[in-house]
Design a protein around this nucleic acid. Structure first.
Lengths: 196, 196
DNA sequence: TAAAATAGGTATACCGGTCTGGCTACTTGG
DNA sequence: CCAAGTAGCCAGACCGGTATACCTATTTTA
């Protein structure tokens, strides 16, 4: 049995990113040191600096990975939705999936927003988080445009409204350590779009 | 002219708290060191540990002070409101006042929520932030109860809805560095309560 | 084909600097 | 006189980041 192309161990890069995903989310970015990351990854410190140019670089790649992670969950959810209303709710479901499965040590809200909260004003990471939130709002606007083809202004305004509900519910859910508030917001939105 | 009760210089406690308010908001809690606080306050490090038992104690008092600060702004706004609808909007106006006047180095969203984002899961500070958010929601519920005396369930549900809008708009506003989103949420809420 | 070069991993030690917190010794105002 | 302030040093841990040296696959080349 020749298995020539099977690395039995993940690359240092992957192990480091996995460790960063967990530690940055649980303890924050400033609260997580390089040493803790390499220890969790089971990797030499040199390997971190072979794969990332600095901690800031690792943080930026972490933010991109979180964004991609949510996009993947959303893509799965939206694939099984049959109309614009369900596709809007798919946005909430994707965050719900995030909340339920992605975190081992308890739910703490949106990792991207939490990260942005402790980044300095001019940090490029803040812009990445902002792009993510704008993409979510733009996805909502697109589905609402399908639902209200004759009233694009109202579609845009409703997208902002729903984005606020989503963000606010996530924030409260993170504070409370569970996703009940997220479910409440989803129910509000279901009622909102029902009448469109 | 005897001016026996006029300390020409604020107490070390007040100067420390003022420095903490500014630095914790701008650079985060973990990102702000003791030395930076005492330097900004123009105070000896010993004075910090005379007035606060630890940095965690200072952080907790900081969170309480921020809560009290918002309550003061809200009290001012609600005093000039003439009906439940205006009193609901006063909640938004208080946050707007916060955004416009309280921060010298740029708006970064809700200081309490930002702080909670970087506190560990079990930290008592997170509970303080949660109490603040629950009080805001309870204020909204009270005014909506005045507006809908025959439908307490709907009042409660609307209070949660509006609290989400407020929180989500604050989060987005903080990301974007200005309070436009807060104004947008206020407008949405004004329309919502208009028809009640 | 066999030797050499390369890429990426490992482990350990170290750098200057900052962290929280405690300490001494001196000064000042009521 | 004394409480509360001052300046500054120190300990021990941790910060991000670098340096050195070794190991082991794979790949290139003579």
């Amino acid at each position: 049995m020749l298995t020539p192309e099977k690395p039995r161990r993940k690359s240092a890069h992957d192990r480091l990113m996995q460790a960063a995903m967990s530690l940055f989310y649980d303890h924050g970015i400033t609260g997580t040191g390089i040493d803790a990351i390499v220890e969790r990854a089971g990797v030499a410190k040199k390997s971190l600096y072979n794969n990332f140019s600095s901690k800031a670089d690792l943080v930026n790649q972490y933010l991109e990975a979180r964004h991609a992670e949510w996009l993947g969950l959303y893509d799965k959810r939206v694939a099984t939705a049959n109309n614009p209303r369900e596709r809007i709710l798919a946005v909430f479901d994707a965050y719900q999936d995030h909340a339920e499965f992605a975190y081992e040590r308890g739910f703490r809200g949106c990792g991207l927003l939490n990260a942005a909260a402790e980044l300095e004003a001019g940090d490029t990471g803040r812009a990445a988080v902002r792009r993510h939130k704008e993409q979510v709002e733009s996805i909502l606007a697109q589905h609402l445009g399908d639902l209200l083809p004759n009233d694009p202004d109202r579609a845009k305004s409703l997208a902002e409204h729903i984005a606020f509900l989503l963000e606010g519910a996530m924030a409260r859910a993170g504070l409370e350590g569970n996703s009940k508030r997220l479910l409440a917001a989803r129910a509000v939105v279901r009622n909102m779009v029902e009448g469109l």
